[in-house]
Every structure is written in C-alpha cells, then in structure tokens.
C-alpha cells in the first residue's frame, strides 16, 4: 500500500521533514539530508555577506530542484518581522509554501501565539500557504486551521532541546480534531521520539538538531528515516491493548513433566 500525505495540494511519500541548520559543513548538511530520505527541507532567510558574495550557498549543496524548500521565520519575535521575512523568501524562491514561527523570548523560545495569529492572518491574506509552528494547545490549533493554515505544527518540546514529545495527550488531541496535517515540530531528540510522535497519529515529523547535533549526523538521519516509517506503520497497524497482567504467548498445555 502506498502511504503518502498531502499538504497544500502537494503529495509526499516521506513523512520526515528536516532542517538544514547547525551542521558542521554544507557537505555534511547534504549527506545527512540525503540519508534522511526527506523531500521537504526547512531553510532560513538571512542577509547575504556583502563582503563575500562568492561564498558557497545552501542551494549549491541542497538543490531546490530536488527538495521542496520550506522557508521559515526562525529568529523572528514579532509578526512584522515574520511577514517581512517570508515575503523576501517568496521573492527569493518563488513559492508560497512557508513555515511560520513567531517566538517568545529565551530560554524557551516558546511559540508566541498572539504574534503567530497576527502573522498568520497577514500571510493568509497575502496568498501564502502557511504551515504554522504553535503551542500544543488544541484551541489555538483549531483556530489556526479555521483561519486557513495548511498544516498545524505543535512543538513536541522546546526548539533544539531534544527532550522529546513532552505532552503526548495534547498532540493526540490536536491530531484527532484536525482536518489538515499535524506535524510534531521541535523537541525530537532521537529515533524513539520520532517513532512515538508518529504512533500518536501525526502526519509527519519535523526535526533539525537531532541530526545536526548527533555524533554521527548521517547515521542518525538513517535512524530517523526508519523511525518515522516504523512509527507510521505501528500507528496504522493499531497497537495491542495495554494489559496490567501477564498473558503468555506460548500454549499453557502440553508442558513436559506433568
């Protein structure tokens, strides 16, 4: 059975979206993304280094012809900055599908939902297709969906924390009520976290630091690829009920010496 998912009319078979930041080199970035099997990659928008116009660029290593670029608003703490950033991204890339994040202050960088709603409204009015990073709040998530966001992306844990999915009950609740894809974004630390997010029924997982900060990013990318596939299959298969008493798998009759 072909298991794929769709966001904003685009169909993907990989349920793993990876970031392109924090790697040691552009070569390592490219190798890790290749190993992850991801079809969508998030990218940041930053000032060019005027002093070094010939510096190697991300596009030369992670070609937008091969991967769907999902520009983000990482580092934006106001709706205005986020909207400006994505308008520039649309001009640079020529596409409307974006990842919106409006962040609160350090040390948690928790989603600033007031700013997120304000930016989402402006972007949707300007014909963007908005995948939105948000709090694990089912009411906020539903409202973003009703506004027209094309995917809801609650955090599993703080950005770059590797703490895993801190609030699985609310992630599950958000997924159960949603009519658009739900992705766990941020917090994933290792393969079991990604599998767990998928077992909750999420449509996909978005991660970056879990690969970039692994001792061996390329090997972790392979692990994440398999974890997402395994978690998705386990969700579709339907897990056995939890029992609080043992129930042996081997027959209890025919035992020797009786």
């Amino acid at each position: 059975m072909e298991d794929s998912w769709e966001v904003a009319g685009r169909r993907f078979s990989s349920r793993l979206i990876v970031g392109t930041g924090r790697y040691k080199s552009l070569e390592e970035t490219a190798a890790s993304i290749e190993a992850s099997g991801a079809e969508i990659v998030t990218v940041a928008v930053r000032r060019v280094n005027i002093a070094d116009p010939n510096a190697p660029m991300l596009q030369d290593f992670v070609p937008p012809t091969k991967y769907t670029y999902l520009p983000n608003t990482a580092g934006c703490h106001t709706a205005k900055d986020a909207v400006r950033t994505l308008r520039l991204a649309r001009e640079a890339g020529g596409w409307n599908l974006v990842k919106l994040e409006v962040l609160g202050p350090p040390p948690f960088l928790y989603p600033d939902m007031a700013g997120t709603f304000e930016a989402a409204a402006a972007l949707l009015a300007d014909n963007f297709e908005v995948m939105v990073y948000c709090a694990d709040d089912p009411v906020a998530a539903k409202r973003l969906e009703e506004m027209g966001c094309v995917a809801i992306m609650p955090l599993g844990g703080p950005i770059g924390s590797g703490l895993g999915v801190a609030n699985p009950y609310m992630i599950r609740a958000i997924k159960q009520q949603a009519k658009v894809p739900v992705l766990v974004d941020a917090g994933i630390g290792t393969a079991s976290d990604a599998a767990f997010a998928m077992e909750l029924g999420c449509d996909a997982v978005l991660l970056n630091s879990a690969l970039a900060h692994a001792q061996d990013p390329v090997l972790m990318a392979t692990a994440m690829k398999h974890a997402v596939i395994a978690g998705r299959a386990a969700f579709l298969a339907g897990r056995m009920p939890r029992n609080y008493e043992a129930n042996p798998s081997s027959p209890t009759s025919g035992l020797i010496g009786r």
Partner: peptide, 10 residues
C-alpha cells in the same frame, strides 16, 4: 536595502 538569501535553518 536588505539583500537576503537562503541559508541552513531548522
């Protein structure tokens, strides 16, 4: 003026 491009990000 602001001149920007895509760089690695999560």
């Amino acid at each position: 003026l602001e001149i920007v491009h895509f760089i690695g990000g999560g």
